[in-house]
Each structure stands twice: as C-alpha cells, then as structure tokens.
Write a protein that binds this DNA or RNA. Structure first.
Lengths: 220, 220
DNA sequence: GGGCGTCTGTAACCTTGGTTACAGAGCCGG
DNA sequence: CCGGCTCTGTAACCAAGGTTACAGACGCCC
C-alpha cells in the first residue's frame, strides 16, 4: 500500500481485512496499487479480461450493460465498503467481463493483482465477505430481471421515485438513464403521474405528493 | 443418507464431496434427506423461506421468474452435479426465495438442512465449489438481462434454436415458454425465419437449414 | 372412417415504448 | 437585456410484441 492513511481508510471501510492473517496482510500491503480515477471513467468493459480486483475506497462505480445502440441499463452500484462481484466472477470463472464499469464520481481504488485476490480468497474471513456480497447481488439481479421482463415503465418509474425523500433533484434524462429508457418517455410518464396527482413537477425537480399511490402503482 | 447406492451416486455426481473431512461427511450422511419428486412439482417459490439445500441426484429443476399474469421466464436450470445457487443465496443472505423452482422431470433430491449447509460451507473444498457455480450463474444472469432488455425476440429465438443439433423436436409453445413469450409470436417469427430460408418447419419439428445465417441474426 | 385433442397458421387489433422533430421555458453569463 | 445553453413539453409516427379469435391440419384412438 502506498501510504499509511490509505491503509487505515481501507480497514475502516473493510473491517473484514483486519481479520486477515499477518502474512496475507503483508502481501496485500506490498502489492496492491492505489489508483485515482476521475468521474466518468470506464474502469472496465465488456469482453475485456479482468486485470485485478478493486476495493472502492472513495467515490463509486456504476456497473451497466450497454446496448448496441448506445443505451445503457444500470445493473448495480459499487460503493466504498463493497466489492465488485463481477470482478470476482471474472477472476473465479476465468471469463472476461460481461458488463461495463463507470466511475460515478472521482474515485479512489485499491487494485489487487489477480494472484493476490486468489490468495485472499484462501482467507476464510475474506471469502465469507465475498460470499455475502455475491448472494445479495444475485438477489438484486433477479429483481432486475423481473422488472425488465415484466414491469411496465410507469411502474418502474414509480418504484424509482420512491424512497429518495420527498423532493428529488434530478432531470428527466437522468431518470431515463436509470431505467434504460429515453427522456421523452419519462417526460410522458411523469406527466401522467402528475395528472393523477401523484407527483408535482418543476425544473429539475420531482415532488412526491402521494407516496402510497406511487407504491400501489409500482407494486402491481 | 438413506441408502448406500444414493451415497455412491452422490459422490459420483459431486466429486467435491469426497474431499470433505470425515466429520462433515458423517454429519451429511446422518442428516440429509433423500426425496423423490415427480415432474412438474414446484419445489420452492417466491417469498418462501428456504428450508434446506438441495443436491440434485437425478432429473432437474428449472428456475423461473413468474409474471403476475402467469407467464414465466426461465432463469437457468439445475442439473445433476450442480447446486441451486438461489438456495445458496437465500441461505447465506437470510432472505426468502425470489424465484420459483419446478422439476422438469421426475427428480431425486438430497436435501440438506440449513444448519448443515452452513457447516458444509466451513469446508474449503465445498465452498470453492459453490463459489465457482456462483460466478458462472452470475455471468448467465447478466447475459439474460442483456437479452431481455436489448435483444429483439427474433434474435433471441434464433439464438435458442442454435446449438441443439440440426433438427429440434419441440412445439412452438415450448419455444415460447423458453423465451417468456407466447405461441402466436413464435409462430410468426418462425414463419419469418422459414421465409428467409433459415429453417424448415413441420409439425413438432424445426430443421436448421442455415446455422450461419441464424448466428448472424442472433449476434446483432 | 369418425371424433377428439393437440398443434399450427393467420388476420385484425391494441398497447407499450421508441423515434423524430420541434417549440418553448428557465437560467446564466457577458 | 440578449444570446446561448440546458431542460421540458408535446405531437406525429413507427415498430415490436401481445391479445383475441378463428380455421384448418395432423395424429390417434375407438
């Protein structure tokens, strides 16, 4: 590791690492690379071989599937304290990435070389940690499949609006990106929601007027 | 385990189990339940708590997401020698199932109680085995998301037809089920493929005439 | 051969969501 | 206050897929 402060931050974010054996710990400190990445960078992409395993120290990564026409569907986000299961899956399965990772903000990563990741997995504590994340993500992905395959866009939009406070500051375009759709449709649907009295719209803002109604819509 | 033959079959299918410690092995044999299930049985369903961990000895399980209107989208299949990662995810994440499992044929399962599954995970060999399956399935699920979200149905149909030999014996209804669609659409699309000379149709049969053409179609 | 069940073909129609193409509206800096 | 930018509203049109509703074909058993 390149600096002591980074090491402390790492342990604070990933308490599991404090349970490593001394040997694993030393190896990690000696070989991991601290990397700074500006917002909006593609840190890995489809069909690309996995070069190492990233711990997110600060910032965050949005993992998306990209359509041939340029549209993107977000799969999940990796925030500090989590790890990128797609990287784990690649490293474990010897397969190339099958999604794209883009930093959502200026991001600090600690990148562990492939061999050292394998070694880390030899540590029970770390392995349990990765296991836990795996199972959570799998549940998320199943949920996403259900939404994409079966839910209509207005339901997905309603679900997206919920649970982010009463006023969201966002553009229609951002909402569309989040749903893997396009701006015009989101505008259309939001108008529909507004006409039903569920939300109130203004520039770069959506105000939730009837959370229960939205939940009802989302839940069908 | 209830009978020696089942034990041998189990080891043959899951060679990893031969690497267990004697203690784990004994525990497994003492507590696992051999269960016979006829074809078409729902062995677990959405929102249901996970009761145990199944090893598939014979037959197979189709894991599907069910839509409110009764349609189903297959997520993956569990064949003998594999394990059901959704069960693993439930047990690890303490969450209820979020998909449905249906036997595709008469099926023999060895069901391991929850606590004993946790104990099995304490065994390195077994844990590695589950890990491997996890990463493969995650890749599958990502692939599925891509298909559902971005591919048109004719492309998905073309992909489905490939890699099953030159003549497939199946009904349009079965193909539709496989795609999470309906019979009429599949008939329509198959007709289109036939008109392009890619396939030849007859009752309960699809003959692949131009695999390369199908692959081209599927790959866009 | 007649009757029945399953499988297939097909047409008309509908809904959803996406595309294209603008027109304004709000905001901000010069 | 003006020009330019981003964001929003909206209408016309289109394509994909699903729904409804039949008709006929094939196979099989009696």
């Amino acid at each position: 590791m390149n600096s002591a402060p980074a090491g402390e931050a790492l342990i604070a974010l990933y308490p599991i690492l404090s349970q490593l054996t001394a040997r694993a710990r030393q190896r990690l400190e000696a070989r991991a690379q601290l990397v700074q990445v500006p917002a909006g960078t593609t840190v890995f992409d489809e069909r690309q071989a996995c070069q190492g395993f990233p711990f997110v120290i600060a910032g965050g990564i949005r993992v998306v599937k990209a359509a041939p026409n340029g549209r993107e569907l977000p799969l999940y986000r990796v925030t500090p304290g989590e790890t990128c299961i797609i990287s784990s899956a690649c490293l474990l399965g010897q397969a190339p990435y099958n999604a794209r990772g883009v930093t959502e903000a200026d991001t600090t990563l600690l990148v562990v070389p492939t061999e050292d990741f394998q070694a880390l997995l030899g540590e029970q504590a770390f392995r349990d940690f990765v296991f836990q994340l795996f199972s959570e993500r799998i549940a998320d992905l199943m949920q996403l499949i259900e939404e994409v395959a079966f839910r209509k866009l207005d339901q997905r939009l309603a679900a997206l609006l919920l649970g982010k406070g009463q006023r969201l500051h966002t553009t229609h375009q951002q909402l569309a990106d989040e749903l893997g759709s396009v701006r015009e449709i989101v505008s259309r649907l939001l108008k529909g929601l507004a006409e039903q009295g569920l939300v109130a719209l203004s520039r770069e803002q959506v105000e939730i007027l009837d959370p229960a109604g939205l939940r009802r819509l989302a839940g069908n």
